[in-house]
Amino acid sequence: MTAVSTTSTTTPVAGAAPDPAPGAADPAPTRERPVRRRRRLSPGRRLPAARLAGPVLLVAVWAVASAAGRLDPAAIPAPWTVFRTGVHLWTDGTLPSDVLTSLERAAYGFAIGLTAGVVLAVASGLTRTGEALIDGTVQLNRAVPTLGLIPLFILWLGIGETFKIAIIAIVVYVPIYLNTHAALSGIDQRYVELAEVQGLSRWAFIRRIVIPGALPGFFVGLRLGVTGSWLGLVVLEQINATSGLGYMMFQAQNYGRTDIILVGLVVYGIFGLLSDSAVRLIERRVLSWRRTLSS
């Protein structure tokens, strides 16, 4: 009797995965890595007119408190009262004349202080002789309160316009000098060595290395100087002056007109905000090549 051996064959099913080879390890299960979102640390895009939000909110709180009767009208008049007073002063010609006088004083003092601050900073920052002769004197001047020099300057220059412009110039030049000098001193030595290796001339070194390196610090000092010119002006115009915003506020104090005093403060604040915004705009245009957190 002959034995018939039968061989079983399996037909692969379409679409089925092939059987693993004998002895082969089972494939490890695949895990999908969770996608981590990158945390954003920058402040984000600049909002248009964002710097006006603070002043607008302050005026809104002032108006609400005045309407609710929380503020004494004799001490702090309502915003609409101050606005009406400002319109009246403008229409009768008092405010335009005082504003022009204050602008003229601030412009003369600022121009002198700006020139002195830049020249002294460059002379002190680029030469050891200039640093030895200038820096210590400026630091001594910085330690002395500028408004404390008023009695001495009155004796030297008289009670007229000259001493007012001189005090404003001192208030302006100190921050411009300090920040520009610090920026010059902070230029990396490797850039100086690179300029020497490239054989740059003195003027090319100043134009390509010194000026770009000093501009950020210069603009910081310029903003402080612009603000300082208005701060000094409000004090100086109350000393033997016959015109100007400070004189107008001083006269209003004698008559108890707090609304006129607030008009003067508002005008000073507007000038300070506009001048600071102008410097910021120029800074962004001049330093557009920088990639900073604020940009």
Score class of each variant (00 low, 15 high):
1 M>R: 13
3 A>H: 06
4 V>I: 14
5 S>H: 13
5 S>P: 06
14 A>C: 08
15 G>K: 12
19 D>G: 12
19 D>C: 05
20 P>G: 15
23 G>V: 14
23 G>I: 14
25 A>I: 04
27 P>W: 13
28 A>E: 11
29 P>Y: 07
29 P>W: 08
36 R>K: 12
37 R>H: 07
37 R>A: 12
43 P>K: 05
46 R>F: 09
47 L>K: 11
48 P>M: 11
48 P>A: 09
51 R>W: 13
52 L>C: 10
55 P>I: 09
61 V>R: 04
61 V>E: 05
61 V>S: 11
62 W>G: 02
62 W>K: 05
64 V>Q: 05
66 S>E: 10
72 D>V: 06
81 T>V: 11
82 V>G: 00
83 F>I: 06
83 F>V: 08
85 T>H: 02
87 V>G: 01
89 L>D: 01
90 W>M: 10
98 D>H: 15
99 V>Q: 00
102 S>L: 03
109 G>V: 01
110 F>H: 01
111 A>W: 00
112 I>M: 08
113 G>S: 03
123 A>G: 08
123 A>D: 03
124 S>T: 08
128 R>Y: 08
130 G>V: 10
130 G>K: 10
131 E>G: 14
133 L>T: 14
133 L>Q: 09
134 I>N: 07
136 G>S: 12
143 A>I: 04
148 G>K: 04
148 G>V: 06
149 L>Q: 07
155 L>I: 12
159 I>H: 03
163 F>N: 04
164 K>M: 04
164 K>I: 01
166 A>R: 02
167 I>C: 05
169 A>Q: 04
169 A>V: 04
177 Y>I: 02
179 N>V: 08
181 H>S: 13
189 Q>F: 08
191 Y>W: 14
195 A>D: 12
196 E>K: 15
197 V>I: 15
197 V>W: 10
200 L>T: 09
212 P>L: 10
213 G>N: 07
217 G>W: 02
218 F>D: 02
218 F>W: 13
220 V>H: 03
220 V>A: 15
222 L>V: 06
226 V>D: 01
237 E>K: 03
247 Y>W: 15
251 Q>I: 04
252 A>D: 02
256 G>M: 07
261 I>Y: 01
265 L>N: 00
265 L>H: 01
269 G>S: 14
274 L>Y: 03
275 S>I: 01
275 S>E: 06
275 S>K: 01
275 S>N: 10
282 I>F: 15
282 I>Y: 12
283 E>Q: 15
284 R>E: 11
285 R>E: 06
285 R>G: 05
290 R>Q: 15
294 S>M: 07
295 S>V: 11
